[in-house]
Simulated scan of single mutants.
Amino acid sequence: MTIKMIAVDMDGTFLNSQQDYDREKFNELYQEMKRQGVRFVIASGNQYYQLKSFFPGIEDELSFVAENGAFVVSEGKEVFTGEINHNVIHEVLTILADFDQGHTILCGKNSAYIAENEPASFVDHGKKYYHRLKKVPSLLDVQDDTLFKFALSFPVEQVTDVLKQLHAALGDKVIPVSSGHGDVDLIIPGIHKAHGLMKLQELWGVKNHEIAAFGDSGNDLEMLKHAGYSYVMSNGHPTVKVAAKEIILSNDENGVLIKIEELIGK
């Protein structure tokens, strides 16, 4: 087994329920990954500026497939940026206005945006995942940014039905994917975590069978199917578990780090 790239989702996978990880253990494994020439990639639906805050001191050595693949940054340099054109943005916002239980954040390269009339509880929820979050009078007014994702939030019990309704309403303008905890992302067709990994593979000459990927939610499916070695957390969604080669310990049991230790033979 030769692993040259390890790609990890964050929420529900690499991070525990306290939104943290065993930093001492990770640092020890990271030094060994560096020694072996194994690339460590963070692949998440979250914002780049939020993701890099979890890795102080080494963030410019790492690679990030952020925003579900719409923004890929490696060693501090931009590798790929997706874009949804403004006409589609307006069409989608008009459709979303009919989903009265939903809340929306519009995600761009420079910042994420939230309407001023959103409740404070949703603004606070958004700030956890979007360290750059600007309030605007209306999402229709956002102009001076490259926009590439919608992040929606619904009551958890509605998500399954909402996903079906969104698929029907949106056609192929954008693709709805579940990212756990009542969150749904609308992503550019064909631009997902696996696409982001492919961009990095081109840079590094890494083959699919040399990748180990870890995830737990619907937005990890393409990445798990793409990687030669795929692992889903025991706390993962049932529909995602069937896509992986192996189900491992949960995010609260250090599942990812224990498996990485095994993979790199430390």
Rank of each mutant, 00 (worst) to 15 (best):
I3W: 04
A7Y: 00
A7S: 09
D9R: 04
F14S: 02
K25M: 13
F26D: 05
E28N: 13
Q31D: 14
M33L: 15
K34E: 13
Q36C: 10
G37R: 07
G37I: 10
G37Y: 10
V38F: 04
F40G: 07
V41R: 00
A43Y: 04
S44D: 04
Y48P: 07
Q50T: 07
L51D: 00
S53F: 08
P56A: 12
E59N: 12
L62W: 06
F64M: 07
F64I: 04
V65H: 06
E67D: 14
E67R: 01
G69P: 02
G69T: 04
V73E: 01
E75S: 11
T81I: 14
G82T: 06
N85T: 09
N87P: 10
H90I: 10
E91L: 07
V92N: 06
I95Y: 09
F99H: 08
F99E: 06
Q101H: 13
I105W: 07
L106G: 01
K109F: 03
K109P: 01
K109M: 08
N110L: 05
S111F: 13
S111M: 13
A112F: 03
A112N: 04
E116W: 08
P119V: 03
V123E: 02
K127T: 12
K128C: 11
L133Y: 04
K134W: 12
S138D: 05
D141E: 15
D141N: 15
D141K: 15
Q143D: 14
D144P: 08
D145Y: 05
D145T: 05
T146S: 12
L152F: 00
V156W: 11
E157T: 08
E157V: 11
E157P: 06
V159T: 05
V162T: 08
L163A: 04
L163Y: 01
K164D: 13
Q165C: 12
L166R: 03
L166N: 02
L166K: 02
H167A: 14
A169V: 09
D172G: 11
K173P: 08
V174H: 05
V174F: 09
P176H: 03
S178F: 10
S179M: 06
G180T: 10
G180P: 10
G180Q: 10
V184G: 00
I188H: 01
I191F: 03
I191P: 00
K193S: 04
K193Q: 07
A194P: 01
A194E: 02
M198F: 09
K199P: 02
K199A: 06
E202N: 13
L203Y: 06
I211R: 04
S217W: 12
S217D: 14
N219Q: 03
K225N: 13
K225F: 09
A227H: 02
S230I: 05
V232Y: 08
N235K: 07
G236H: 05
G236Y: 02
H237F: 13
P238W: 01
V240N: 03
V242K: 15
A244L: 05
A244T: 02
K245F: 02
K245S: 07
K245N: 12
L249W: 00
L249Y: 01
E253Q: 15
L257K: 00
L257H: 00
I258N: 13
E262H: 14
I264P: 08
